[in-house]
Design a protein around this nucleic acid. Structure first.
Lengths: 348, 348
DNA sequence: AACGCAACCGAAATCGTTTTCGCTGCGCCC
DNA sequence: GGGCGCAGCGAAAACGATTTCGGTTGCGTT
């Protein structure tokens, strides 16, 4: 390995000067700087990341914290899409993006400790169980941090507009005459609460009364559980005309359950998903869904984090909400005249 | 930050002793070691990864090199599955897994340079364009390295058994009476060549003559291009009875094209995919496909790499081939009597 | 001719570890 | 009691960079 020292010797200069020249900072004459950089290139000089990191305290790497529930960040296309966008943005600035699991953090005694140990320059928190105390330690630390899909009031956050998403979906179904809406939602989590609240709000605003048994909990990204809940819905005396699924992949299970009952989508039952992933477009009748803008979410979060890292004092932790886009698909049938027996128009 | 020095002071010992005690190596009395570790814990000591890395030359992180073509490692479920498995294995040993893009490497002047700069302890090469000279530099370096789905003769490699996979698929179709097999394969790449060779070998062994126009190139993971090639096949005077797709997701495009022509799978045309991803199981008629064992591939590669890192001198670069598993699905129709007009039984 | 001021450059401290090698002191054996 | 050996510990030299601060040089000014 050729070091600054070698270059200094070769050029008959001091290490300090060489360092300055390589970093293009502070006073070195243009001529010497040029000469230094040239010999550095010739000698195949590479800065030593560890040494640099030790002096500067910066590691030029960013952690991507993922709290796996059913799945890792790799296995869920929404998270993977975000991660991909993040990586593209940060690596342009010379940062490595390091996915970090809970287990890694635990060996070191919590997320904060692990981040300090590795001296990540910033942290992106994805899909978290935000009540974990070990996460709170991190959030309350001085480490630059951006959360995604959850907001701490003193921390920057990027949120997908779940309120908008669910509202649009409800209205979409309503506009096509659907009045008996069932919502199979995912397990408890911030986004789930948002969507649930928005679902109820939108229904209420439209004067829809949703029977409690129409609102059921399954798991995200898990066809089996949504199949089960679909079964449950189909066993009721009056089945819904449109079923909302936790996400696109969960719809797979629902679809299967519906087929098993001889029901077809959207002729017999309508359905909507969430996320707008590949899967939605696969079906013969593409799934009606709400596409979250992974790319924008990831890129925005990354840029905010880089800002926070660049100017920690002047950075103000905004919380941006990014809109999504309803993808109409073909799984919500137009019923024409609404089912008057069920949906009673109330004024709010 | 509390350092070894602080602990040493607190305990009235030297830094050296503290370091030894913390690493549990070399001669420190059990009693002092105990005392040291305790105060370290009390004081909230965390080792400084950068400093350690600088001394030892090891960074405790592993690079995952990805050469994106159409897609990043995040966006392709086969690669993502492997990455996930890798991460689980390496992080158990305290390593970070760092996905590295081509662009990052280029800022530093090639993969080898980047890896040296970051002093990754090992490198995993995924989905590479193996003829790139910058990759060859890396492969010919002394850095521990394992390739996946491609083998350099002096380097460890983990391969998915593409020969087996394609052979089984061909035989599967043959056994169900299919004689007119078309193969829409992916873009040129090592795995493509393997599958292509195996396809032809298997066909020949079964006495099948495949017309050249039945073998067509599309792209992996790209429904559009496979849709186009499917169209082309459907425009021929005699259409195949079974179409082989580059991978499961590519089948999506094919399926669409078939539907557009009023053909249904498997009643009118049979189809098989490759990979065995989620997507295969989504369809009403689950796709017949060959499931690659991402988990085993990733875990095996990770373990081999850890071995190579652990004992670089005695490590012998094996090349393991991991079997996959044919998933029967429902997209290959049993034709009963073979089409005698086309498939002529030849003895090899 | 002397002085002042930039502009450039270098010596050296420092970051936090690891690791070698030597020192000390104790116990054991003869 | 003396010598030997070993266990336990410490001093110090790295690792490779950054950065401060002071010194030198050269030039312009009066």
């Amino acid at each position: 390995m050729v070091t600054l020292r070698d270059i200094a010797q070769q050029c008959g200069l001091s290490i300090a000067t060489v360092s300055k020249a390589m970093n293009g900072v502070s006073e070195v004459s243009a001529a010497t700087a040029q000469r230094i950089r040239e010999t550095a290139r010739e000698m195949g000089y590479l800065p030593n990341a560890a040494a640099r990191s030790m002096k500067t305290g910066r590691s030029m790497s960013i952690a991507l914290l993922q709290f796996p529930k059913n799945c890792s960040v790799w296995k869920h296309s929404y998270f993977a899409g975000i991660a991909d966008a993040v990586q593209r943005v940060v690596e342009e600035k010379g940062y490595d993006l390091v996915p970090v699991n809970r287990t890694a953090a635990e060996t070191m005694g919590g997320y904060l400790s692990y981040c300090r140990y590795r001296s990540y320059d910033g942290v992106l928190v994805l899909s978290a169980t935000f009540s974990e105390s070990t996460l709170l330690d991190l959030v309350n630390s001085e480490i630059p941090l951006v959360t995604i899909d959850y907001a701490f009031h003193h921390r920057a956050a990027v949120l997908s507009d779940n309120l908008q998403g669910m509202q649009e979906l409800v209205r979409f179904a309503y506009a096509r005459g659907h009045r008996r809406l069932a919502f199979i939602h995912g397990e408890d989590a911030p986004v789930t609460r948002d969507r649930l609240a928005s679902f109820h709000a939108a229904c209420e605003a439209l004067g829809l009364r949703i029977p409690p048994e129409y609102v059921r909990e399954a798991l995200y990204n898990d066809p089996e559980s949504s199949a089960r809940e679909t079964e449950a819905l189909l066993g009721m005396p009056q089945i819904p005309t449109c079923i909302f699924y936790p996400d696109d992949y969960a719809y797979v299970g629902g679809f299967r359950a519906l087929c098993a009952h001889g029901l077809s989508v959207p002729e017999d039952v309508s359905a909507v998903g969430y996320d707008g992933t590949q899967i939605a477009s696969i079906y013969q009748h593409p799934l009606t869904t709400f596409q979250q803008d992974c790319d924008a979410i990831g890129a925005t979060a990354a840029r905010m984090l880089l800002d926070a890292i660049g100017s920690p004092r002047s950075f103000l932790p905004r919380q941006v909400v990014l809109p999504g886009r309803l993808v109409a698909g073909e799984t919500v049938r137009d019923l024409g005249a609404p089912d008057a027996a069920f949906g009673q128009a109330r004024r709010a």
